[in-house]
Every structure is written in C-alpha cells, then in structure tokens.
C-alpha cells in the first residue's frame, strides 16, 4: 500500500487533518457551536467550484472563500439579532448551491469530481496540496495552542472575557478563521460535508474519560490521528470514500468507548460511581448522612455508602 505515491500523500494529509481538526473543534464543542464547522464546509464548496471553473488551484481559492465566509459568519453572529439565524442559513445554502452549480459549469465538473470534494477520496491529494496543508496545519496548531488560554476563556464564559478586557470579537473571528483553515486542510481526505465530524467526534470520545480540558485535547488529538489514518487505510482496502470511512470509524470508536466506560462502571468489583454523576462533593455540608468508617467517612447516598476514592466514590 505504501509503495503507491498517492497513498503516501493521502496518509500524510490524513495525519495533518487528524491532528488539527480536534484542536480547533474542542473550542467549537465548548461553545456549543458544533455545527458551524459544517456551515463553513458548505461555504468552502463555492470556493472549490470557483477554483475548478477557473482552473486555478481549488485548494487556495477554497481557503479564500472559507476564510471570508468565516469572518462574515462571525460578524453576523456578533450582531446577535434573531435575523442572524436566517442570515447564516442563507450563507450555508448559498455556499453549497454555488459550489454545485460552479462545478457543474466547468468542463471537469463530473459527478465523481464533486463527490470527491464532498466526501473525500484518497487518490486526489497532490504534492502541492500537501505543501498547502502542511503550512496551514503548522499555523493553525501554533495559534490554537499558543493562544489556548484565551480561546479557552472566551469559549468558556464570553461575558466574563469581555468584562476582563479581552478582545472577544477578535478572538471569535480568529476561531472562525482557524475553523475555515481546518475545513480546507480536510477537503481532500475527509471532504467538505464530513469535516465537521472530525472536529467534533474525537472530542466527544475524549470526554468519555477526560477530567480536564488539557487531557481532553490530548486524547482528542490521539483519537483524531488514529481514526483519520486508520480510516484512510481502510478505504484503500475496502475501496470506499475515505471521508465516510473515517467518520464511520470515529463513530464506532465513540460507541465502543461509551459502552466500555459504562461496562467498567457496572463490572468494577463493588458498584463504582463516576464522580461526575454527583452534583456535589460529599462533605459535612452536603446533607447526606455521614458514617465514620475506619480511617475515613462514608456518606449515605441513595441507600448505599459512598467513600471518596480519587476521582470517584467507592461503595462501602
């Protein structure tokens, strides 16, 4: 498999998108804007259509279109009016409709070509694409990691960030531009309609076990790289569109992780509570009856006794 040049390029592109998509996606998840990535993919399709029609590099034109779209979306959102929702919908539909029509108009605009942009294809990544993706990935990762504290703050509590003097609009536009760049990095392997999944799913998987933002991001990057390269490999052997294969693989991992976490809870010796199920920490003030038990104190909770043990409670 690796003796094919196209496969080497595909796996490299998969590695890049697997690393960057979750790092940007975590902020979208935190702000509950998981679907914005989806919308940006729609807008980028018009850029791709323009690129295909004019014969210039579709990747670079798509980058221009999605960055412009991202800035516009963020400015519309910042106005916060009820009409913003409609305005976003118009941009999203307009983006995908424009892309489909423009690609249809061009001589090379075959259905196969369109499908490759929408759902990913392993044979399409060129050497030039790889250079563009590589540079974009380095820039996106540097900004997303270097400004992580600020992006975290503004995603966690926008109003507080504003009160403490942060440039909230600037940071929001920056996050939108990072998202747009990630959409472009993904357009060969994952496809514009599915990229949002690769920003969101690795984070959803990471949250099954993570207890901190930092560990959540690290796990999400690991998951992102594994599913994107794994899915690309699978699509080579199964002869399937790479984007769909990657996303199905990610969903499979998500289901397995969720079920495993649940089973671990059920099977583990005594019944074992994840602390997150508790709305509070047991203590003298919590209202649950305290029962001294050898060297510690148990708290009576739903008819059984809880003893704090690391990040969870054991039942005694």
């Amino acid at each position: 498999m690796l003796s094919y040049d196209f496969m080497q390029r595909a796996l490299l592109a998969a590695l890049l998108v697997g690393m960057t998509a979750p790092v940007v996606g975590v902020y979208l998840v935190q702000r509950r804007l998981a679907l914005i990535g989806d919308g940006l993919g729609h807008v980028a399709l018009t850029g791709v259509g323009l690129g295909v029609l004019t014969g210039s590099s579709p990747v670079l034109v798509a980058l221009g279109a999605s960055v412009l779209g991202a800035v516009a979306i963020e400015l519309v959102r910042a106005r916060g009016r009820a009409s913003a929702d409609i305005a976003l919908a118009v941009m999203f539909y307009g983006g995908i409709a424009g892309g489909v029509v423009l690609i249809g108009l061009s001589p090379e605009g075959t259905p196969a070509n369109l499908n490759a942009y929408l759902f990913g294809a392993i044979t399409t990544t060129t050497g030039t694409d790889l250079w563009v993706f590589g540079v974009l990935s380095v820039v996106v990762l540097a900004v997303a990691v270097g400004l992580a504290p600020r992006l975290f703050a503004v995603s966690n509590d926008e109003e507080y960030a504003r009160a403490s003097g942060m440039n909230v609009l600037g940071l929001n536009v920056l996050l939108a531009v990072l998202t747009a760049s990630t959409v472009v990095i993904s357009m060969r392997i994952v496809g514009l309609l599915l990229i949002s999944a690769l920003m969101i799913l690795p984070n959803a998987i990471a949250q099954v076990t993570a207890t901190s933002f930092r560990s959540s991001v690290v796990v999400a990057i690991g998951v992102g790289v594994v599913v994107s390269t794994g899915g690309t490999t699978l699509s080579y052997y199964a002869d399937t569109p790479s984007g769909g294969t990657i996303v199905l693989l990610a969903i499979a991992v998500f289901v397995v992780a969720t079920v495993a976490a649940w089973l671990r809870g059920v099977v583990h010796g005594r019944r074992h509570h994840d602390e997150r199920e508790h709305r509070h920490e047991h203590g003298p003030e919590c209202g649950h009856e305290a029962v001294p038990h050898r060297d510690h104190v148990d708290y009576v909770h739903d008819g059984h006794r809880h003893a704090a043990h690391g990040a969870h409670y054991d039942d005694h």
Binding site: Q30, N156, D157, A161, M166, A210, T211, S212, F213, R214
Partner: peptide, 19 residues
C-alpha cells in the same frame, strides 16, 4: 461554571489571570 468540555478548577481560575 461547567462548560461542554470538562475543565478543572485550576483551568477555570487560571482564565481569570489572563487580564
């Protein structure tokens, strides 16, 4: 203070230091 992504007390409090 809990958002959609898990975060620790330390991580949330540190965001107050950014100013």
């Amino acid at each position: 203070v809990a958002g959609a992504v898990p975060s620790t007390v330390e991580e949330v409090v540190a965001s107050g230091r950014l100013a």
